[in-house]
Design a binder for these strands. Structure first.
Length: 543
RNA sequence: GGCCCGGUGGUCUAGCGGUUAGGACGCCUCCCUUUCAAGGAGGAAAUCGCGGGUUCGAGUCCCGUCCGGGCUACCA
């Protein structure tokens, strides 16, 4: 049997991470078995339809790296040979009607004309008598065609309901949990066709799954209690049901269902926050799925190769943001620096990035979003293609003729900066504040760092000596390797008669970066270049 | 209320009748080191929700119970 799966969201809002995880599993499973992944839109509820969210669905999927070969947005002609793939269009095309007509004809379904008031009354009565609530027939389940005709002629709006057999056992086979049995007497008769002529999820989704030859249904756990209805429906239609896979929910840190309260929950929120799609995919895939062994950090391809229904979890999981950050860092480190720079620049240039951070109130201990944005902007700016230069030095070509003129920022310079920060950065956004000092004219100092390292008496003569040496050695006209910087600073240590390298390294670092933390000093100096080093050293006078 | 699903350290999980209950995040200590990370080595942290059984032996099987979640719409 060939694997055909579908992600079938309803366009009622931007997909959150739980939805996207379902979509991701579809993709992984399809890829694992060389099958087909379908994107189908369940837009049968006109009241809840949200304009523009179809794009958000596709964006979300592309962001985390989900591929689909068929359906809405697929490259195939018309989306594929089972189109259309929007249920509203399918209904218009008359795809569902013959099937519910057939159910009506053979007595598997019936017309019901209850008013909302009548239904409400029924429910209240049931609750009062501690019965299970639901529609178990009322006066319409066994009404004659003549009675139905009377109601129809009277202009009463009617719905088509499935006639769930009574006194039977309904067995649902769930791929994760196994066999689940239901007394058919507690399964109420679901509406198949609404009064407005639209099919409900129960009907449209199942008919489509069959027509589209779907082999496995991946969907949220909240569907599990509707599953018996679907089993009955398939049987009534004379079709074999697909394998059902009910996925556990993703909860927030406090154990409740993930919601706005928990911060970012929409998939695209994480793109705005600067997480690479693959990292998010890796992280959410592992809530509810264990690849076996001790594997955790995986690419999409690796996950697809390892994906197996057996690793799926029946219990719900908590979204642990800290672990996402860790996972994200692991992916940052795995990424080729050139690709990484490209991603950072792309991120920096996306308008939503600016919106996201500028409207954000920083949590205690969180970096100032404005510093982050400034760094991102500078990074993107420098990575702009410049007029061609003959030499591709990391320090970049110099502007003007004077010896001490400031080298311009180039893409290569940005690349070197990203390379140096790569292993200590855990998201695209973080490159903002991490790389900022590479690009600014005047470094912003951390008061504490200044206090600790710039007030030592040896600092002024140290900086002076280094500046002199840069001049004396004629370093300003070319780039200087990290090893040469190291040699210079070690010499400074000897000249100033310091017993450790620390008192040399730390003040210089503060002068150059404004901070006590960061990449290796010598490497960093090699990237900044002699001119900038000298300038920054001089700028600390007065501190 | 009714029906259904779930329950291994704070979190994600391995386990599938016999293990000192393993790994990962987070936390702590140490090493590496010019700082911060990363990396390496350790540590604290789970009587496997609880109570009964079955068994020589149970996280693993059975029953009960508690807690959490879902559904109970002409929403999906």
């Amino acid at each position: 049997m060939s694997v055909r799966v579908r992600y079938a969201p309803s366009p009622t809002g931007s997909p959150h991470v739980g939805n996207i995880r379902t979509a991701l599993y579809n993709h992984l499973f399809a890829k694992r078995h060389g099958g087909v992944n379908i994107l189908r839109l369940e837009d049968t509820d006109r009241a809840r339809f949200v304009l523009g969210c179809e794009e958000e669905i596709e964006e979300s999927m592309r962001y985390v790296g989900i591929e689909w070969q068929e359906g809405v947005g697929a490259t195939a002609e018309g989306g594929g040979r089972f189109g259309p793939y929007r249920q509203s269009e399918r209904n218009e095309a008359g795809i569902y009607e013959p099937h519910w007509r057939k159910l009506l004809d053979d007595g598997s379904a019936y017309w019901a004309f209850d008013t909302p008031e009548e239904l409400k009354e029924m429910r209240e009565f049931q609750e009062l008598n501690k019965q299970s609530t639901g529609y178990y027939g009322g006066q319409w389940r066994d009404a004659t065609e003549a009675q139905a005709e009377v109601a129809r002629v009277a202009g009463k709006p009617g719905v088509v309901r499935l006639k769930v057999p009574r006194g039977e056992k309904i067995v649902v086979e769930d791929a994760i949990r196994g066999r689940i049995e239901y007394e058919s007497d507690v399964v109420d008769d679901p509406v198949l066709i609404k009064a407005d002529g639209m099919p409900t999820y129960h009907f449209a989704a199942m008919v489509d799954d069959h027509l589209m030859e779907v082999s496995h249904i991946f969907r949220g756990e909240e569907w599990i209690s509707s599953a018996p209805k679907h089993v009955v429906l398939f049987k009534a239609l004379g079709w074999a049901p697909p394998v059902m896979v009910h996925l556990p929910v993703i909860k927030g840190k406090d154990g409740s269902k993930l919601s706005k309260r928990h911060g970012d929950t929409a998939c695209l929120d994480f793109r705005r926050a600067g997480f690479m799609g693959e990292a998010l995919a890796n992280f959410i895939a592992l809530i509810g799925w264990a690849p076996g062994g001790d594997r955790e950090v995986m690419s999409l391809d690796e996950m697809a190769e390892a994906f197996d229904l057996k690793g799926l979890q029946p219990s719900s999981g908590v979204f642990d943001f800290d672990k996402l950050v860790w996972m994200s860092g692991m992916h940052v480190r795995r990424t080729d620096p050139r690709v990484l720079l490209q991603k950072v620049v792309e991120y920096a240039r996306r308008p939503e990035t600016e919106h996201y951070w500028s409207s954000r109130v920083p949590a205690p201990g969180e970096v100032d979003p404005h510093v982050r944005l400034r760094g991102l902007r500078l990074l993107a700016e420098s990575a702009k293609p410049q007029e061609p230069s003959s030499h591709d030095s990391p320090a970049g070509p110099t502007v003007g003729v004077g010896q001490a003129s400031m080298p311009r920022f180039t893409e290569d310079y940005a690349l070197e900066a990203v390379k140096l920060e790569q292993e200590r950065t855990s998201s695209l956004a973080e490159f903002g504040e991490k790389c900022e000092f590479f690009f600014v004219d005047a470094v912003e100092f951390d008061p504490k760092a200044v206090e600790n390292w710039l007030h030592e008496p040896h600092v002024a003569p140290l900086f002076e000596w280094i500046a002199d040496q840069i001049g004396n050695r004629g370093w300003e006209s070319h780039q200087v390797a990290a090893a040469d910087w190291e040699a210079l600073l070690r010499e400074a240590q000897a000249v100033l008669n310091l017993d450790k390298l620390g008192p040399v390294v730390h003040p210089v670092r503060v002068a150059l970066t404004g901070s006590t933390a960061g990449p290796g000093l010598f490497e960093l100096m090699a990237v900044l270049g002699p001119v900038r080093v000298k300038t920054r050293l001089a700028a600390t006078q007065g501190y």
